[in-house]
């Protein structure tokens, strides 16, 4: 059986293109499973997974939990607000205390970039990064690119523009890494104050004009403006942001060809995209959500099989 080159999913940057293909092929099978009348398989019956969320999340957490339950894993949940973190316990201690209860895998969301990498050096468990600050959100990128692959058959050669707050976005970074590894072309588009100065070193191009970017691309991935990560204002007002970087139906109708619209959620309707765009035939936003469960099942299944192989 093929296996991943890594024993943790800390970021897309640590994966090979073969890993990405393996995850997608495995997700194809799980997507078929979750569309059966009986949506559950016994694959991870002997695996215990802890979902540690040190930062708020609704969809990612639900998606992971559902994926774990579909795989028949035992699941425990932990969130920072109800935890000992506020009592001053360190991350390593918190996680080691949970692992002492014989947990095999940790799914962690954390506000600090590199928190998963740090943890992987200090604890014995398989770690899945569910978002670490502005570093990476690997499963989101995997499900995004899986959705592109599903719609277009393949990813190589496709043109994708990522629009919005690139600077504060872990989704942008993970998407760039995934798409580049699979041979797609990527541009980023947004206010210059929200584009990292050295972004082109990642092999992407910058386009500040949204219409030009949309004319160029096959797919537009619309990011949310991460107000919570900004220490001050990077643009004057939401109204002005929408004028330049918001997508509405009228705008899409002026383009010479249709563009597929993606969004990692949660959508600020009327900001990044209007309702008529979000709900249109060109939007694959809800496919992304469905694929999220299949992708997360694939990732956890592949990582768990490495744990089992090691034990055997």
């Amino acid at each position: 059986m093929k296996e991943l080159s890594v024993s943790n999913l800390l970021g897309i940057k640590y994966l090979t293109a073969e890993d990405l293909h393996l995850i997608f092929e495995t997700a194809d099978q799980f997507k078929e499973v979750i569309n059966r009348p009986i949506k559950k398989v016994p694959s991870l019956r002997d695996i215990t997974i802890a979902n540690l969320f040190f930062e708020n999340s609704t969809r990612t957490r639900l998606s992971f939990e559902l994926a774990e339950k579909r795989l028949s894993a035992d699941v425990i949940n932990f969130s920072a607000s109800s935890s000992s973190v506020i009592k001053g316990e360190t991350l390593i201690d918190t996680v080691n205390n949970i692992l002492a209860m014989k947990v095999d895998m940790v799914v962690m969301r954390h506000p600090n970039p590199g928190a998963g990498v740090f943890l992987s050096k200090h604890v014995k468990a398989s770690i899945v990064n569910a978002g670490d600050g502005a570093h990476e959100h690997p499963t989101q990128a995997l499900l995004d690119v899986f959705s592109i692959r599903e719609k277009y058959g393949e990813v190589a050669g496709k043109k994708i523009v990522i629009v919005g707050d690139i600077m504060h976005s872990r989704v942008a970074l993970s998407n760039i890494f995934t798409l580049k590894k699979l041979g797609a072309e990527v541009k980023v588009c947004g206010p210059n104050s929200l584009i990292p100065k050295h972004i082109e070193s990642l092999g992407v191009k910058v386009e500040h004009n949204l219409i030009k970017a949309l004319e160029w691309c096959d797919i537009a991935n619309m990011l949310r403006v991460q107000n919570e990560r900004m220490e001050h204002s990077y643009f004057p007002s939401t109204r002005e942001y929408v004028q330049q970087y918001g997508i509405n139906k009228t705008l899409l109708d002026t383009l010479s060809k249709p563009v597929t619209i993606m969004h990692p959620g949660p959508i600020n309707r009327g900001v990044e995209i209007t309702s008529d765009v979000a709900d249109s035939e060109h939007s694959i936003i809800l496919n992304q959500v469905e694929n999220g469960v299949a992708i997360r099942m694939a990732v956890m299944y592949l990582l768990a099989s490495k744990i089992k192989n090691y034990e055997n």
Binding site: K13, P113, H135, E136, H198, L202, E231
Partner: peptide, 21 residues
Amino acid sequence: AGKAQVNEDEFNTYIGLKGMP
């Protein structure tokens, strides 16, 4: 410098830490 803790260059872009120019 703001709240940035590392230099602004290719590496901070790669690892997602805020950069100080």
